[in-house]
Design a protein around this nucleic acid. Sequence first.
DNA 1: TCATGTGAACAGATTCACAGCG
DNA 2: CGCTGTGAATCTGTTCACATGA
Lengths: 232, 232
Amino acid sequence: MPTVSSEELAAAAGVNSAKLRKDFSYLGSYGTRGVGYDVEYLVYQISRELGLTQDWPIVMVGIGNLGAALANYGGFASRGFRVAALIDADPAMTGKSVAGMAVQHADDLEKIIDDNGVSIGVIATPAGAAQQVCDRLVAAGVTSILNFAPTVLSVPDGVDVRKVDLSIELQILAFHEQRKAGEAPIDGADGAEGAVGVEGPAAKVTKPAPGSEKNNDDRKGPDGDVPAVMPA
Amino acid sequence: MPTVSSEELAAAAGVNSAKLRKDFSYLGSYGTRGVGYDVEYLVYQISRELGLTQDWPIVMVGIGNLGAALANYGGFASRGFRVAALIDADPAMTGKSVAGMAVQHADDLEKIIDDNGVSIGVIATPAGAAQQVCDRLVAAGVTSILNFAPTVLSVPDGVDVRKVDLSIELQILAFHEQRKAGEAPIDGADGAEGAVGVEGPAAKVTKPAPGSEKNNDDRKGPDGDVPAVMPA
DNA sequence: TCATGTGAACAGATTCACAGCG
DNA sequence: CGCTGTGAATCTGTTCACATGA
């Protein structure tokens, strides 16, 4: 399949074809009128725009279950990421092989980052160690951090942090599940009678997907469809 | 602190106070004019709306590194989730203790789901097993699935699937990192000269956060700020 | 003729600004 | 008086529909 039309791509992705064309147009005019988009060329252009054509050395700090799972995660390499080092503070871990790499001790963190020109760090430590690790990463020159620890990190301006909360996804499923179960108030403690706009967001729950596969359509993000504030 | 104003909450969350008030108003009128919101009452109302006051038994299938990491994840219990069972297809895993629970064999999947009234399942198996596990979960009555396997699952109508791609978050960081590095084209293969709207989305990258902590502000979601289509 | 690329219309979400109530 | 709750104004993002060019 050498070329593809916006219509076909849109159907596959479950979005409107006009939106897709408009989005593509922001990257430049890579299509051919009357024909469509050259697949190979389009893939290259999008890859380049997203940074997939670059090599991104990353360090992973905290090689527990989660760190090991991440180190073994197949998707990284194909997206241009190269795990430059696995780092753990536990001396017992040092030298152990995880995902085919020797774990290095946290003492060498600064040197490792410097030697490899790392600008992206992944934190998979326990909550208590996260801020300290973060500070060291930033001091050593890391400017993007992916945080799996259940802590809010403070960083100076110019440093990006993304926090992944693995339970928030379950939360969202449970929220939808609750809706499926019926609108009846579960526990009649008191009045949610006047709950006006509840129907709005709820309409998203089971959108009839235009495509045949249904998977994360309708989704704005892990926290895109729940209120911003939530009790700890 | 018995009460809190929309202004304070908004500052803490890094959003506009009017938006916060409007969002809250969809749940009902739980504030007091001239005073603010009663913290305890507000927490309860939001918890109830989000389903935090319910007990959600879940099963986790695939107890490798990632499954074990999830089973040990502290955040679940506090959000109303109860891990009803850990399930793995490997007989060598059966009976092993992970996060204080004995791993059960996949043969018993249907019985476990039925006995515990489970409606939410977590798949952390290798990609090859995911669809099969998914089908069995659905057949056994599960209606919400959290999928960590790198596969798109097909499910019947009425079943919710959320896919978590751990590398997508890195992808987003790398995308921003690329922007920080400067607008100069990295590889001059050919013309992205006419790249018009690139400045639009880019403006989001380093928004001056209204709050003091900067952490996942500006974020729509793991895929909220990258185009919908991306090469495998 | 066909599918892109894009102004213009539309829809949805956010913010403003203030009436109303404790 | 202060802060909520909310219509109205504004802004942002999506979709329509068609001129344009291969």
